[in-house]
Design a protein around this nucleic acid. Structure first.
Length: 580
RNA sequence: GCCAGAGUAGCUCAGGGGUAGAGCAACGCUCUCGUAAAGCGUAGGUCGUGGGUUCAACUCCCACCUCUGGCUCCA
């Protein structure tokens, strides 16, 4: 898109202007790379000082001056030797390294504006006059490894956002504010949904009563759908002896994500980072016929993985989580249908939770991998076919598969347009081999089944985090921890409130009855802050006519609804998974 | 794990080398109330943990833990 190109040029040019400002302000700074990114730009610096947030203001001010100076962006093609001389004179060793990485035969170009020259392929705007000094903002300072490698030195990265005009900038800043408001960590506290505890172990989630109510609603629905779609549900242990993990290969290739073993009766036991080996143990308790296949076995399996401390993030990145895992074991001939079925099933579930903007990513064979080429090719074809039949947008991630098989990942877009990787459907050519899984085919011969791993929601914890942000805490009725708040207008009507509350509970509606000595207005405010979808206000009028006065969290109110009608209506909304 | 910033009452936050402050919440009393906060009062903190400097540290210094923004990694 032409517009995107234009913004890209603006952002990339902003990065250069920022680099100039930083180099001017902090002589001795070496510059690394500074690309345009979604919504803005960044630039990585090797600075002689550490930056503070106040420095960003100074840098912005200097940037505005540079922009207002109406400097031309000049492009110059130079020979490698010339470029090398320029950057070694400047002492820009990062640029020299980048220069060396440019393939032979490719043009080496420099871009200069005002006092700053950068090794850059461009393109840029023609003149800083085309940048608006009031449509960018420097946002944050962060550390970043040179070229993204952990062993390389840590550089200082400054992130900024830049737009064509101040209005667009304002809109974007508002969007950022909205994201902050919906942050699941903030809402998790405000709505009393979950907590984590440093003294009890970081990255481990404690589900509070209201969070648990939501989780139960999710899991109940999940189980029902799985039974409906031909799955059996399993429960398996949390620990397994080293033998299991040796056989599966996890001790070899997954060791650094696993918790240290504990010794029991002179054996090493490991807490599970994955559920698959356990499902395979169940598979191997019997001789399986082709008539038994496909087997679809699902489990809400809680796993523990060691994550680097800096990687932990609210519910989205934790050390203990429950996967909505399943393994499909089938004949090679069945696999195509099974994949299609998984995809279809998955899309239905996403729809029920209110997500319909979904994109698929197909990952193919990486260099280091197991299994013969023919199997890989066929598997990839069946994955792609399924994506196409379901009419999903997709991208191919060449070589992005696991070493044991190709996969489809689904990324879902939330209400704010952010993509989250949740569903994963992965072929496994490794475990059936390692565990010597077999089935007896038509011809009486033992053959190797295909195995497909899949997680729909991914993990309950992460899904919950995304769900909170998607709805901004205002969950659809069927998921709301409190579906109905019952509020008497005065203590004299407590009895009627209790009667109505009991009736709701009898009908499996989650109701909280507020008999505190708060005034009615305060009660409404409290429930409003908890984003309870329905509030029933009960006083003389209602008690005498066996009715309720309904207030929605939107503020809308309807008076004198007969009790039975309200219950029926609410049950209908729950069943149809309506927002409110 | 790495770079930077932060950690003060249940929550949100102020303060600052001389014995710790507000609002909300909690608790008690009064009020008996019609669609987003009634009034008054009481209680609540080894100022993240450990060490150091100092007559004196919540404040300054060091180490560690955790959180936040990133990098790396990923459900």
């Amino acid at each position: 898109m032409a517009n995107e190109d234009k913004l890209g040029k603006i952002r990339h040019s902003m990065a250069h202007v920022m680099a100039e400002a930083v180099v001017q302000k902090f002589p001795g700074t070496k510059v690394a790379i500074g690309p345009a990114i979604d919504n803005g730009f960044y630039y990585d610096f090797d600075l002689p000082v550490t930056l503070t947030l106040e420095d960003l203001d100074d840098i912005s001010t200097r940037m505005k001056e540079i922009i207002n100076g109406k400097h031309e962006f000049k492009r110059k093609v130079v020979s490698r030797d010339e470029a090398e001389k320029i950057f070694s004179d400047l002492g820009e060793n990062y640029k020299l390294e980048l220069l060396k990485a440019i393939p032979e035969g490719e043009e080496v170009s420099l871009y200069s504006q005002n006092t700053f020259t950068d090794l850059c392929r461009g393109p840029h705007v023609e003149n800083t006059a085309q940048l608006n000094p009031d449509s960018f903002k420097l946002l944050s300072i962060a550390g970043a490894y040179w070229r993204g490698k952990e062993t390389n030195p840590m550089l200082t990265r400054i992130y900024g956002t830049a737009w064509e005009n101040p209005k667009q900038l304002r809109l974007h800043l508002k969007h950022l504010e909205e994201m902050e408001k919906r942050d699941h960590r903030k809402l998790g506290k405000e709505l009393d949904l979950y907590s984590t505890h440093e003294e009890a172990g970081p990255g481990l989630v404690y589900w509070h009563p209201y969070g648990s109510r939501i989780r139960l609603a999710i899991e109940d629905y999940w189980r029902k759908e799985h039974y409906k779609n031909g799955y059996e549900l399993l429960y398996t242990p949390h620990l397994g002896k080293a033998w299991l993990w040796q056989t599966s290969g996890h001790l070899g290739f997954y060791n650094e994500s696993m918790y240290s073993p504990m010794e029991v009766d002179e054996n090493d036991y490991y807490i599970k980072p994955m559920n698959c080996p356990f499902h395979i143990m169940i598979y191997k308790t019997d001789i399986r016929s082709y008539r038994d296949l496909p087997l679809r076995w699902a489990e809400l399996g809680t796993v523990y993985r060691y994550e680097k401390s800096g990687a932990l993030h609210g519910l989205l990145r934790v050390r203990g989580f429950t996967q909505d895992d399943a393994h499909i074991i089938c004949t090679p001939g069945q696999v195509e249908d099974e994949i299609l079925e998984v995809l279809r099933f998955s899309l239905n579930i996403w729809k029920a939770f209110g997500f319909s903007d979904i994109k698929a990513y197909l990952s193919t064979r990486p260099e280091k991998s197991v299994g013969d080429q023919d199997m890989w090719d066929k598997a990839i074809v069946s994955l792609q076919k399924a994506i196409e039949i379901e009419g999903l947008d997709f991208e191919v991630d060449e070589g992005g598969g696991a070493f044991y098989g190709p996969k489809i990942d689904l990324k879902i877009k939330d209400a704010l347009g952010r993509e989250w990787q949740m569903t994963t459907v992965q072929f496994d050519f490794n475990l059936p081999e390692r565990f010597d899984m077999t089935f007896v085919d038509h011809d009486g011969r033992e053959k190797r089944p295909y195995m497909v791993h899949r997680a729909l929601l991914g993990s309950i914890e992460r899904f919950f985090g995304v769900l909170i942000e998607h709805y901004g805490g205002a969950f659809p009725v069927w998921l709301s921890p409190v579906q109905v708040a019952v509020i008497p207008v005065a203590p004299a009507f407590n009895e009627y409130a209790e009667k109505i509350g009991a009736l709701l509970k009898e009908n499996d509606i989650r109701a909280d009855i507020d008999l505190s000595d708060n005034r009615m207005n305060a009660k409404i405010r409290n429930f409003q802050k908890k984003k309870v979808p329905y509030m029933l206000i009960l006083g003389e009028k209602e008690a005498s006519t066996d009715s309720v006065s309904l207030r929605l969290r939107t503020g809308k109110q309807t008076n004198a609804i007969p009790v039975s009608e309200f219950i029926e209506q609410t049950l209908g909304k729950i069943k149809n998974k309506e927002l409110i």
